[in-house]
Design a protein around this nucleic acid. Structure first.
Lengths: 141, 141
DNA sequence: TAAAAATAGTTAGCTAAACAACTATTTTTT
DNA sequence: AAAAAATAGTTGTTTAGCTAACTATTTTTA
């Protein structure tokens, strides 16, 4: 049966995590998706980063990052300018509004993380990390 | 850092699995998505099933199933009729063309499964299953 | 039995993932 | 210096997931 399939369980768990997280953000009245938060957080931690670098960190392709960055820009959480030294690159930085959101979000994101992971022992944490990595490695050979 | 986050790793692994699987299907020249295959397989194993039941098995909502079923119908892999006893329900069954595809797909799907999971020990398999379940349960409280 | 509630399915609108094709620069090669 | 290749980003298309709103039946209940 399908439910015994590990692939299915991984995908299902990923969906549940996203659903749960999105729901908590909604309850707090926050207009951002989990994925957009990941991007915003990276921009906050890396001054003048470009989109390719964000893609490398999140393992996502150029169009996906491009669209998410444009969402964040439209919502005025970030500032997007063209690099003065290489006009192919954009330089992304966080806005005041973005900083405020980040501050508001930190405890909420932490709450989301703790909710799902709080009861995992150190051993279980290490175990799932290594098994997931093993699966990814086999699929990348 | 983001890569140490278990949620991120689960989501990343789910994406890798889908990418890898989709790629193998493409290499075999097969015009179906992984998700559509899951639906097709359930229809193959459950005569006259309706869409709600498929949704329950795959833990997906009505619109998602509706669209996937319509794709399969358009590609003529299934036959979709209205139930004679309750016209709210559809009755889905596999077509000859769908049966042929299923037969062709079984070894390919098995190959995809084996590729990622072959080096997991029985203990690792049980371990990841129980940890993923634990996470899902905590998120559903 | 008539009204209300539940059920099955569809449609619309949004985000994200993946791919291909494209523009516009910058760098490398010859 | 001119041509070719590489790089950064955007746009278009398709599929899937999610929510909300909708139609059309069937079942419940008052």
């Amino acid at each position: 049966m399908i439910h015994n399939n590990i692939y299915f369980q991984i995908e299902l768990t990923a969906r549940k995590i996203r659903q749960y997280g999105q729901n908590v953000l909604k309850q707090h009245g926050i207009d951002i998706t989990i994925e957009q938060w990941l991007v915003l957080n990276i921009i906050n931690e890396n001054e003048a980063i470009n989109q390719i670098s964000i893609g490398e960190k999140l393992v996502k392709d150029k169009p996906t990052i491009s669209r998410m960055v444009n969402q964040l820009n439209k919502k005025e959480f970030i500032i997007k300018t063209t690099s003065a030294t290489d006009s192919r690159n954009v330089e992304l930085s966080i806005s005041k509004k973005g900083e405020d959101l980040i501050k508001k979000l930190y405890p909420i994101i932490e709450e989301i993380r703790l909710t799902g992971l709080s009861e995992l022992s150190k051993k279980e944490t290490e175990s799932i990390e290594s098994i997931l990595k093993k699966i990814r490695n086999k699929l990348s050979d």
